[in-house]
Lab assay of single mutants.
Amino acid sequence: ETEYTFDDKREADRAAKEAQNNGLRVHVTKDGNRWKVRID
């Protein structure tokens, strides 16, 4: 399990989409004014 934090939602969405394309499970959550992408 890996977690990334992004300031920009577009960057978070791009990272999530890339991980999904690689067959990974992805969870995107909002943390204040930042975005967390957790990859299982």
Rank of each mutant, 00 (worst) to 15 (best):
K17E: 11
A19S: 03
V28T: 04
I39C: 10
A16E: 04
E18I: 13
V26T: 05
V28Q: 03
T29G: 05
K36S: 06
I39W: 04
N21D: 13
R25W: 07
R10F: 12
N21K: 13
T29A: 07
A15P: 01
D7H: 10
A16Q: 04
E18N: 09
D31Q: 08
G23R: 03
K36G: 03
D7T: 12
A12N: 00
T2N: 09
E18Q: 10
A12L: 02
E3T: 12
R10A: 14
E1Y: 15
R10D: 15
A12K: 00
E18C: 11
Y4S: 04
A15F: 15
T2Y: 13
V26W: 03
R25M: 09
A15G: 01
R34G: 09
K17T: 10
K30H: 09
W35I: 02
D31H: 09
T5K: 04
D8L: 07
D40G: 12
E11I: 05
D7F: 11
K17I: 11
N21I: 11
D31W: 06
E18V: 11
Q20V: 12
D8G: 04
D8S: 15
K9H: 07
R10T: 11
E1K: 12
I39Y: 05
F6N: 01
W35P: 01
R38C: 07
D8P: 01
K9I: 08
R38M: 12
D13Y: 15
R14W: 08
R25H: 11
D13W: 15
D13I: 14
E11G: 06
G23I: 02
D31K: 04
A19W: 13
W35E: 01
A19H: 08
D31A: 07
Q20K: 10
E11F: 05
R10L: 12
A12V: 03
G23F: 03
E18R: 11
Q20R: 14
E11A: 11
V28N: 00
A19I: 07
Y4N: 04
V37L: 08
I39D: 02
E3A: 07
T29S: 11
R14C: 09
D7R: 08
E3Q: 07
D40T: 14
N33L: 07
V37C: 03
N21H: 09
Y4W: 14
N22V: 08
K30A: 09
G23N: 05
K9P: 09
G32F: 02
H27M: 11
R14Q: 11
E11M: 09
R14I: 10
T2R: 13
D8Q: 06
A19L: 15
K17L: 13
D7V: 09
H27S: 13
D31T: 06
N33Y: 05
A15S: 04
Y4I: 09
Y4V: 07
G32N: 05
N21S: 12
G23Y: 03
T2D: 08
A15R: 08
N22Y: 05
V28A: 01
V26N: 01
V37S: 00
K17Y: 10
G23A: 03
D7G: 07
T29Q: 10
I39H: 03
K36F: 08
K30I: 06
A19F: 15
A19C: 07
K36Q: 06
K30C: 06
E3K: 04
D13Q: 10
F6S: 01
V37I: 07
G32H: 03
L24S: 06
A16D: 02
N22P: 01
A19M: 14
T2P: 06
R25N: 10
E1N: 12
D40L: 15
T5G: 04
I39R: 00
Y4P: 03
W35A: 00
E18L: 12
K9N: 03
A19G: 03
V37R: 00
N33K: 07
L24Q: 07
G23L: 03
H27T: 15
T29D: 05
N22S: 11
E18M: 10
T2A: 11
E18F: 09
H27G: 04
V26M: 02
T2M: 13
W35F: 04
D31V: 13
V26C: 03
H27V: 14
N21Q: 13
L24R: 06
W35D: 01
D40Q: 13
A12M: 02
R14P: 02
H27D: 06
N21L: 13
D8M: 05
E1L: 14
R34H: 10
Q20C: 09
R25I: 11
T2H: 12
E1G: 14
D8H: 09
E18K: 10
N33P: 09
G32E: 04
I39K: 02
R38H: 13
V37W: 00
Y4F: 11
T5Q: 06
L24N: 06
D13P: 00
F6W: 02
A16C: 09
W35L: 00
D7N: 10
F6H: 01
D40A: 11
T29L: 11
D7W: 11
R10I: 12
Q20Y: 10
A12T: 02
T5F: 15
L24F: 15
T5L: 14
Y4Q: 08
K30M: 09
L24H: 12
E18H: 11
N22Q: 13
L24P: 00
A12W: 00
G32Y: 01
R38K: 12
R34F: 11
L24W: 12
D13K: 06
W35Y: 05
R34M: 09
N22I: 10
V37H: 00
T5Y: 15
A15Y: 15
L24A: 06
E3V: 14
R38Q: 11
G23K: 03
H27W: 13
V26R: 00
E3D: 05
V26Q: 01
H27A: 08
R14A: 13
D40S: 14
